[in-house]
Design a protein around this nucleic acid. Structure first.
Lengths: 201, 201
DNA sequence: ATTGGTATACTATACAGTGAGTATACACCA
DNA sequence: TGGTGTATACTCACTGTATAGTATACCAAT
């Protein structure tokens, strides 16, 4: 075993996830995370060189699981692209009903660290969102949609809007509304090949 | 004169606006605001009973000016409802290019205080967003759109999505993309009266 | 016997909020 | 007119606690 106990670093990351996500970045002290992980602050600082480093690791640990979840929701849905896109929102609305749900950790961290644009965690967050957008782009490109890049952005915007709005109103109905909007823009993109792409303007 | 100097409470609110919006709620100390306002912390506590009280006052001071700005952008735009809706986003994208722009103060505060759902500032933020939605509802109701309530929500979602996404990527092009999506959903709502409202499902 | 991982105990600073007091100004009464 | 009481608006110096991060040392296993 390279790791003597089954844990330590993992326990720290676990505690960081729970506390940073649940309470916010600046609201949570390093002491609190160490205590929650059942070890001392010095041990934490052995594994992570600073609080900023830990914040970055916290976000990085959410990247792949989050993307995988969205893909799963999309893949398991029946129907055409519009149905599958809407399914992501329907599932998200369901998640949002869990009492511990507090929106998107990436967006909330970006909001909290908006005054530190160079913070390493900000890059992790931006990369995560770009990956999600790129994946959407890909699936819309494979289907025969009018402008996959633009469509992917519209879905991303609706998604982030859903996260933010529900954080304000605590009403998952907004996510379902976003889902219907997503269905609508995807359907438009699927149906418009007959028409020329750009409106008159 | 009831107020001996032309300021004090206003200077505090002004400093709070600059610092809370620019740096974040929990990143800014009461000392920092007092110093920025050019008075002592005790004076600040004479006018506001706590930091939480000041946070609430900060958000409340942004409510009407923000709404007025959106209305102005909408009213001054030429064209039909879709043009006017898109105009809000175009103007917002322009604002977002200012170096001091840090997204929506209401959303960022909601993200930061997500662990305190009962915080008085959260209510101020929620009310603000509801007022914006209600106003959209009204203007879409006057035009002959298919489902004004749902349409208003879609615009709100795109707007909050635009705020959040640009906070992550620092690229106002996302706001313009949101504007095109807004134009699209408004246009759909204007054109769909021929069709029955609900899709097959 | 040295390395990886952990702990106790500490430093220095920053934080929200307070105790006690001061200067000004106005209101009411003699 | 002058004196007294009271509210407003403000300051200096402070308290107790929490914060990020560290110095030093211990211990188990290679």
């Amino acid at each position: 075993m390279s790791t003597p106990s089954p844990s330590a670093k993992n326990r720290i990351l676990d505690a960081a996830n729970r506390l940073f996500y649940g309470e916010g970045i600046r609201a949570v002290s390093v002491d609190a995370i160490a205590t929650r992980a059942g070890l001392t602050k010095k041990t934490l600082y052995y594994h992570f060189k600073s609080k900023d480093d830990l914040i970055e690791a916290y976000l990085a640990s959410r990247d792949q699981p989050n993307l995988a979840l969205f893909r799963k929701w999309f893949d398991e849905a029946e129907g055409d692209l519009a149905d599958k896109a809407e399914a992501i929102f329907v599932n998200l609305a369901q998640s949002a009903r869990h009492p511990k749900w507090k929106g998107c950790g990436f967006l909330r961290t970006a909001a909290e660290l908006a005054n530190m644009p160079g913070h390493p965690a900000m890059k992790v967050g931006a990369d995560h969102k770009k990956k999600f957008e790129a994946w959407l782009c890909e699936v819309f490109g494979e289907g025969r949609t009018a402008d996959p890049d633009e469509l992917a952005r519209h879905i991303v915007l609706l998604m982030d809007g859903a996260f933010s709005t529900v954080l304000v109103h605590h009403d998952p109905a907004y996510i379902e509304s976003a889902g219907r909007a997503a269905r609508e823009v995807v359907t438009n993109a699927l149906c418009t090949p007959p028409k020329s792409k750009a409106p008159l303007r």
